[in-house]
Design a protein around this nucleic acid. Sequence first.
DNA 1: ATGAATCGTTTGCATTATGCAAACATCGCG
DNA 2: CGCGATGTTTGCATAATGCAAACGATTCAT
Lengths: 161, 161
Amino acid sequence: MGRPPGYKYVMHTHDDIDAVTAAVLTTSRLFVAISARSLAAMEETVTLPQYRMLVVLSTRDSAKLVDLADQLGVNPSTATRMITRLIKADLVVQEVNPDNRRERVIRLKPAGRRLVDDVTSHRRAEIAAIITRMPSAQRGALAEALNAFNEAGGRTSVPPG
Amino acid sequence: MGRPPGYKYVMHTHDDIDAVTAAVLTTSRLFVAISARSLAAMEETVTLPQYRMLVVLSTRDSAKLVDLADQLGVNPSTATRMITRLIKADLVVQEVNPDNRRERVIRLKPAGRRLVDDVTSHRRAEIAAIITRMPSAQRGALAEALNAFNEAGGRTSVPPG
DNA sequence: ATGAATCGTTTGCATTATGCAAACATCGCG
DNA sequence: CGCGATGTTTGCATAATGCAAACGATTCAT
């Protein structure tokens, strides 16, 4: 049967997708392990859900409760009570928005920001350590390929350093 | 201080590591988002911790409770009660190990395995979709680079044959 | 401007997840 | 047999979670 000229190329592409998907899934699991280790450092200070709340807060200067709940994918009532505990732990503050007194605006306190920074830098160090163990010739290729992947996945690629 | 001949090379390497680390961190966040979407499909059937338990079980033919707790990083008592609920949901079975009657061996039931498979294939499809959107020239490079990364991150010390 | 829909948060209630410590059951060994 | 180690469960306390209802503040029509 006369195959189209692109036959081999198409097959090759399909194999590529399978191979890359497998590699990506493995990487995904590796990230989970890295996260777990990074988090172990602070598990005594806050719980994991509380930490995730702090992370969301760290990416916004301030936020109202509904938005936080939305970002975390939890019910507003859950967010309310988590914030209550984080206030008690002195990691965040909550104040009424004077422009719209329905809203309560939540903000990280210094201790909260410090905690997030600590975990992030721990994770960053761990990733950097892995990269250091990679053949240096691969590093540029990894950055380039991941940026393409991130782009295709609907995220901004590398932020300006 | 007289700089060693390798100065520029070393600096370049350092920049590489920073750039790659940033890209990896972004990818890590992307994976979290992908996971969240994949999980949304089954949130009505089991809770997230329960799902993670099923995943651990899916990688072993059978397991005793302590091992499961260990893999999940939770207390054995927590694992006990989670298994109790999964049994009630008909997703796993538990039986006494005749060789060592202290141990209770837990195993996935078909419904449990099906659930894990569904979520996994959903995630795999989502990753494949992203890869399809990537420039095809990048795919091979991504697989190669990720394999190197996984290798470097997989085991900190002893690489198996 | 006043009553009604709407937005944003909280509370009540029930269930699950979690850790710690103590109890309990089984095994292996001297 | 008795004792330490291994493996699981239970009691207790707290956190996380969703849903539904209550509540407060705003906005919008009429």
